[in-house]
Nucleic acid binder design. Sequence first.
DNA 1: AGCCAGGCTAAGA
DNA 2: TCTTAGCATGGC
Length: 293
Amino acid sequence: MTSARTGGLSSILLKGPLDLRATLYSGQAFRWRNEENVHVGFVENVPIRVWAEDGRLAWQAARPIPEQRIRHYFRLDKTHDDFVKQPPTDAFLTNALGMFPGLRLLRQDPWEALISFVISQNSNEHKIRQTIEKVCTLAGPTVMFEGETFHAFPTPAALAAMDETALRSTGLGYRAKYIHATATRVADGRLRPDELVRMPYERAFETLLEIPGVGEKVADCVLLYGCDHLQAFPTDVWVRRLVQESYYRPRKAATHERLREFAWKQFGATAGYAQHYLFHYRRVVGRLDASPE
DNA sequence: AGCCAGGCTAAGA
DNA sequence: TCTTAGCATGGC
């Protein structure tokens, strides 16, 4: 409750645009909420309020978070600048970049991303948020922040300790058994999410496919949003739609494999980064547009 | 009310 | 190797 317990007020100067709304509510992260120009959520599983003012990113957290970790999470670094300054040559992408100048790919925690995207399957954003919140309330540690009780994301052990019935009370439905199996594998050390970041993309992809409830699409979401693999190309219904509408209609079925191969030819090593701009554009604006302005 | 959602698994062709 | 039924739940 006293300010001595918080991280105080900090800020860093932004070199380029940062659109917190687009970044935090574009289907890559699920725990942020907007409160009148302030966004409340977690960075490194620490409760935090963030906002942008006067070309700076400001924050106040439940305990001190090093500036480098903030930069890391919001990707305030060269990997983003390089992509924006020299994006893959593509008229649709250029348009999307112009429409959402401050949209960024976050670097989320691999474990949280794994559980979150298993939950996301065959669901919608509102329900995904709701379910994740209930899972955190059920199994996550409580943290006080400015007089409010927050539930941080559960540890693998805490989540593995929940039986399927308890998990189902959160609205997980048939995904409850996937969550239990996944948490158990991480808790007992058979899967180490942190190692996925260092692994080569292909090996990380194959490793994730062995997890119950993780298919090709979820694996690529985990790798893109939680493991810093910018070539990962998730193909949900929106991405399938936009690819087939505007780019490429395979002769045979539009499998994840075929769309991913197309994306690598079209967008190269940062296909996943491109995917996020196109995904967001398609959902918010509509059909892709290749003509400037 | 009925279709859809940031899909996956297992069975059967 | 490819296609498809079934799966739980809530949004719209």
